[in-house]
């Protein structure tokens, strides 16, 4: 029964969203070494504590969000549009600073 503060719709019940997963991975350059691609496609950290994840407001505004969530307490700490929060788009996207 989480509530996600959608930047476009306001706080909404998590049942309106679908979950994708880790938002801290970055799609490599097309010609990056195969290892890097394996990491992007298959390898995921399973952090205890603050984590950034992709959620899709599928039954709302259809926007992809980067949601910061505490995997231990399930607390939702904030949400950004994926456009702004995605790893490809800037400094907000790196691994969690608290780690």
């Amino acid at each position: 029964m989480l509530r996600i503060p959608c930047p476009f719709c306001g706080p909404r019940d998590h049942s309106e969203f679908s979950y994708l997963g880790d938002a801290t991975v970055t799609r490599p350059e097309a010609e990056a070494p195969l290892d890097e691609w394996f990491g992007y496609v298959y390898l995921r950290d399973n952090p205890r504590g603050r984590h950034r994840e992709h959620w899709h407001h599928a039954q709302g505004c259809r926007q992809w969000l980067v949601v910061e969530r505490d995997t231990l307490t399930h607390e939702i700490l904030g949400a950004l549009p994926a456009r702004e929060g995605s790893p490809a788009a800037g400094p907000a996207a790196g691994k969690d600073a608290a780690e």
């Binding site: 992809w64 456009r83 995605s86």
Partner: peptide, 10 residues
């Protein structure tokens, strides 16, 4: 498609 446009190639 929405994911690619918003999160990968904005």
């Amino acid at each position: 498609l929405e994911f690619l446009l918003q999160a990968v190639w904005p």
